[in-house]
Write a protein that binds this DNA or RNA. Structure first.
Length: 234
DNA sequence: GTTGGGATTATCT
DNA sequence: GATAATCCCAACG
């Protein structure tokens, strides 16, 4: 149904288009009232403990510069992973491998891991380099719609399928393991977060698909925007 | 060098 | 909602 609006105009006149207005046409629950602050979030923001940071990240806007243009999306779902004690965390018990070593960075860096083939999941480190903690970005709401559609190449007619899952978020942003360690506070990275003053109603639940984590699987460390259709199914 | 499973997704019925 | 796909990665030898 909405597919027609999605696939129209792949190029041409794509300058000066009001992004929020575009979303409004395509999504039943648009973020049309969001209030961007066009300043890169700095290292102080990411110094918070991982559970606090997971909450603070809800509503923030990810910006990534690509050859195709600038990708923007609102974070609508996160999960906190906190080693060494958290059995769900890849760095549980301070397990440090080639994959997990990126946990040991100051807050505001990326940890990207691959899973089930060509899926790359995006994490943002919290606290300091001595704290192996990171926030998994499980879902975002696209703002720069045309570019994301072009990048993701999904055949689905549901706009939500562009970004309602952790692997899909990595796909939207064209991330892979080469982006491990990227600094979100460094202007040269071409990727950063900006603030959004809109207040969202935030839901809390246990984390998803970590049944192996025993007593840690029930921790209320998942946060999401209530009534937002881009939140993952779980 | 081989193996087994995963913080998932796409594509069916 | 069920299942196949798909490949990286860590844990063995």
């Amino acid at each position: 149904m909405k597919q027609k609006e999605i696939k129209q105009k792949d190029n041409l006149d794509q300058q000066e288009k009001p992004v929020a207005k575009k979303i409004k046409k395509n999504e039943a629950n648009p973020a049309e009232e969001y209030e961007v602050v066009e300043t890169m979030l700095t290292a102080d923001f990411y110094k918070a403990g991982v559970v606090e940071l997971a909450q603070k990240l809800i509503g923030k806007i990810i910006v990534r510069q690509l050859p195709q243009g600038e990708v923007r999306a609102i974070i609508v779902e996160t999960e906190a992973y906190k080693a060494p004690e958290d059995k769900a965390c890849h760095a549980y018990n301070n397990k440090k491998t080639d994959r997990t070593k990126y946990f040991w960075q100051d807050g505001g860096h990326l940890y990207v891991y691959s899973i089930y083939g060509n899926n790359y999941c995006l994490n943002i480190t919290a606290a300091t380099k001595d704290d192996p903690e990171a926030v998994l970005i499980r879902a975002v709401q696209p703002l720069s719609f045309d570019i994301i559609k072009e990048i993701r190449k999904t055949k689905s007619t549901k706009v939500q399928d562009l970004s309602n899952g952790p692997g899909k978020c990595g796909g939207c942003l064209l991330l892979d393991k080469s982006h491990n360690g990227l600094n979100l506070c460094d202007q040269k990275s071409g990727m950063y977060l900006i603030d959004n003053k809109k207040q969202y109603e935030i839901g809390v639940s246990a984390r998803i698909n970590i049944d192996y984590a025993e007593e840690w699987k029930d921790k209320p460390w998942r946060f999401y925007v209530k009534n937002n259709s881009f939140v993952s199914k779980g």
